[in-house]
Write a protein that binds this DNA or RNA. Structure first.
Lengths: 298, 298
DNA sequence: GATCTGCTATTCATTAATGAATGGAATTAA
DNA sequence: TTAATTCCATTCATTAATGAATAGCAGATC
C-alpha cells in the first residue's frame, strides 16, 4: 500500500525516530510516554504505508535496515522543524513560566549551581529548574538542555556563548591532614606528601607538566575521576588537593596552602542555541545565571 | 500547557499546514481525506499544546495569526522531509506499480498525450497514469505531479529537464472555410480573411510582431484562450488558424496553407525533481514519454 | 426580504487506537 | 540446569478520536 504524502501520518515518523535512536520498542515507548505495543503497531503501520521494511527484529531490540537508515536523516530534519515550531510558539507566547533545563559538570552541580538556582527561584517562582549534571566529554545535545554552564569555551559554531567569570584555583588540605602530616614548603616538597588526584583523567598531570613536573598517575595516593567526590576526599583528610578557591576558602575545616605556584584560573561560560535563547523564560534564566554565578564565586 | 517536543503530536502540524494553505477547515479536510470537525479539533489541540493562537476564525474560513505565520516555514520544512521519506521508501521498494501524475497544457492533453499514454499503459499495465492539464502560467508544484511535459524550457534550478522533440507549426483552414472564402496568397492577404486568434493571450500577436506585422487583438474575428477549443474553431470553419503541423496534416477535413512564412517550431521538454525521478515507476514513465512523444509528433 | 452558499461549532453514535496483562524467546548469571 | 532479566508479540477491555448530522452565522444573489 502506497499513500500520497497528504495521507501519510506524520506522527508515525516520530515513533520511527524514537525506535531508531533507542534501539527498542520499550525504550522508545518510555521516551514518548506511550506503551510498547503502541510503538510496535506504529512501526508496522508505517512499514505498511511505505511498503518497506524499516527494522530487523531481534530478541534484544530492533536494528535499522538499509532503507531505515536512508530515511533517518529526513526524520531527524522533521524533528528539528518540530523543535523550531515549539520554540517559535514559546517565544511568541512570551510566557515567563515553565521549565528551564541546565546542564553542567557534576562538580558545579554540587558546589556552584545550588545557591545560584535558589536565587533564581527566589526571583522567578513561576520558572521550574532542572539541573542535569554530567562529566561526559561530549558536548551539549540541546534536545534535553536549554542552557549549559561550562568551564571551557564551547566550540560549536551554531551556539551563543558568553564568558561570565573566572574561577581562581587553590591548593588545600584539611586541618586533620595538616595535624598528621604538616605543610609542604613548596611544590617540590608537596610530592613528599599525600596528594589526591584523578584516576584516568589527564587534567592534573597535564597541569603539572606545564609547570615543569612530570609525574605518573600513581603518584596520587588517592584517586577518583568524580570531581565532586574528589573534594570530599580532600575534606576528609586523605591528602592535599586542588580545587576552586571560593570553595576551599569558605570551608572552616580547610586550610589553603602556599606552595609558591600560580595555578591558571578556570573560565566560566554560558552557552545555548540562538532560537532557544529567545524563549522568554530561558532568556530570563540566562540573565540571572550571568549575574549570580560570578557572585557565588566570590 | 506546554509540552516537550517528544510529547507533541507531529500529525497536528500536518493539519495546521493544510488549514493554512486552504484557508478553511473544510478545505483542509478534503485535502487530507478527513472531516471538518476533526480538523477543527486538531487545530484547537495544537493551539492548546503550544499555548498560542494560530488562526483567526471568520465566517468564511480561518486566517493565520502572526504566530501562525511564524511557524509556517517550519511546517513546510516538515512536509518536505516527509516527502523525502516517502520518495526514499519508494526508491528502495523498487516497485514498478502505482500512480504517476503527468502535468501538461490543455492542448497537449487533448492532442498529444492520449495516444502516448495508451502506449505507456500497453507497456506497463501495473502503472496507473493521471493526466493533469492546466494552462495556468505558474510553474509546477511537485506536490501533485511527478512529471511535466512543457512546450518551453523550464527554468527552475532544482529540476531535471530533458529536451525530447521540436513541434513543427503550420497554417491551416478547413475545407468548408476554403470553399466559402478561398485561400490567401501570402501573409498580407491572410489579413483580408477571417483569422482565429487568442483573446487575452499575447502569444500570437507577439509572433506576428516578430515577423514584422503589428495587429490588434480584435483583428481576430473569432477568439479563445483555450487552445484546445481554438483548434475546434478552426476545424469548424470559423477561420484560418495556426497549430501544430502533425495535427493539421492528420485531419482529412483540414488543408495546410502556404502563405510564405516560416513559423518557429515549439520545443518539447520533460521535467521532474531529481528525487522523484529516481522512483522506479516515474523513471519508467519518463523513459517511455521520451520515446513515444516524438513518435506521436511525426 | 427571502433564499442560497459556504463556512464554523457542537452533539452523539461509531470506529479506531491505546495500554494492561500475558506469553514466548533469547541471553545471562548463579 | 534453573532462575532472572530484557526484550517483542498478542489479546482484550478501556479510552480516545472520528465523522454524520445539525445548528448558527455571514455574505452574496435574486
Amino acid at each position: 500500500m502506497e499513500l500520497k504524502v497528504s495521507h501519510l501520518d506524520w506522527s508515525l515518523v516520530q515513533s520511527f525516530l524514537a525506535v531508531a535512536e533507542t534501539g527498542s520498542l520499550s525504550g522508545a515507548a518510555a521516551a514518548l510516554g506511550q506503551s510498547q505495543p503502541t510503538l510496535g503497531r506504529h512501526i508496522k503501520t508505517l512499514e505498511d504505508q511505505l511498503s518497506v521494511t524499516l527494522f530487523q527484529r531481534h530478541p534484544k531490540g530492533l536494528s535499522l535496515t538499509d532503507t531505515g537508515n536512508s530515511i533517518l536523516p529526513a526524520a531527524i530534519a522533521m524533528r528539528a522543524a518540530m523543535t523550531q515550531i515549539a520554540n517559535t510558539a514559546e517565544i511568541d507566547a512570551g510566557d515567563l513560566s515553565g521549565t528551564v533545563r541546565i546542564a553542567c559538570s557534576v562538580f558545579a552541580a554540587h558546589h556552584v549551581l545550588p545557591v545560584v538556582l535558589a536565587k533564581i527561584r527566589e526571583h522567578e517562582p513561576a520558572i521550574s529548574l532542572v539541573l542535569q549534571p554530567s562529566d561526559d566529554s561530549e558536548n551539549l545535545t540541546f534536545r534535553d538542555a536549554d542552557i549549559a554552564v561550562r568551564m571551557y569555551r564551547p566550540k560549536q559554531l551554531d551556539l551563543i556563548t558568553r564568558h561570565i567569570a573566572e574561577i581562581e584555583m587553590g591548593v588545600f588540605a584539611a586541618h586533620s591532614y595538616i595535624q598528621r602530616k604538616g605543610r609542604p614548603e613548596n611544590l617540590q616538597g608537596m610530592f613528599d606528601h599525600d596528594v589526591v588526584g584523578y584516576d584516568t583523567s589527564p587534567l592534573m598531570i597535564d597541569a603539572m607538566k606545564s609547570m615543569g613536573h612530570t609525574i605518573a598517575p600513581d603518584a596520587f595516593v588517592v584517586r577518583t575521576d568524580n570531581q565532586s567526590a574528589y573534594w570530599e576526599l580532600v575534606r576528609a583528610g586523605c591528602g592535599i588537593g586542588f580545587t576552586q578557591a571560593h570553595l576551599g576558602r569558605a570551608d572552616p575545616h580547610i586550610e589553603e596552602l602556599d606552595i609558591g605556584i600560580d595555578i591558571p584560573s578556570l573560565p566560566v561560560w554560558l552557552t545555548t542555541h540562538d532560537t532557544v535563547r529567545r524563549i522568554p523564560r530561558v532568556a530570563r534564566v540566562w540573565d540571572l545565571l550571568a549575574r549570580e554565578i560570578p557572585r557565588a564565586l566570590q
